[in-house]
Amino acid sequence: MSYFSDIYKGIKTLLTGMSVTGKYFLTSRKGAITQQYPDNRATLKMFDRFRGEVIMPHNENNEHRCTGCQKCEIICPNGTIEIIWDRGIDEETGKKKKKIDQFVYHLSMCTMCALCIDVCPTDAIIWGQNFENSVYDRTKLTRVLNEPESKLMPGVED
């Protein structure tokens, strides 16, 4: 007897469950859970704090804000940042001053922990929103963040 009542109960609770799935089947055609990702590229906007990759913004005179203090290189847990620096002559005072030659960023090693951006005293590096980082050759993931011939923005001190 309990065999049949079990079948009855099973079907009944299955139908209860299916009332949930059926509701969504009928109602949520629009506003579905999924996104049509490659097709919605034009309208897809990431959140402004989204951690995509570390970038170094430059202004229109090809100047950045990095003084070469190397704090980000020291705090980075896995050696993602390598700063190759040099001593240049400060134009105003004529004294020797540290400047960056190349700010090397190995995206392949970055864990997106945000410690470097947090520690930078001059906000020279920020988060970029690009997340489509797949490449065919992993050496392409090693980037030099400062533009060639770029200079330190005047007035930026650490």
Partner: peptide, 22 residues
Amino acid sequence: FRDREMLNDIFEETCGARLTMN
């Protein structure tokens, strides 16, 4: 996952990452 997605969005907006937030 639908409901978790809302939470992931909250995390992403506040701290930038969805899973390994630090």
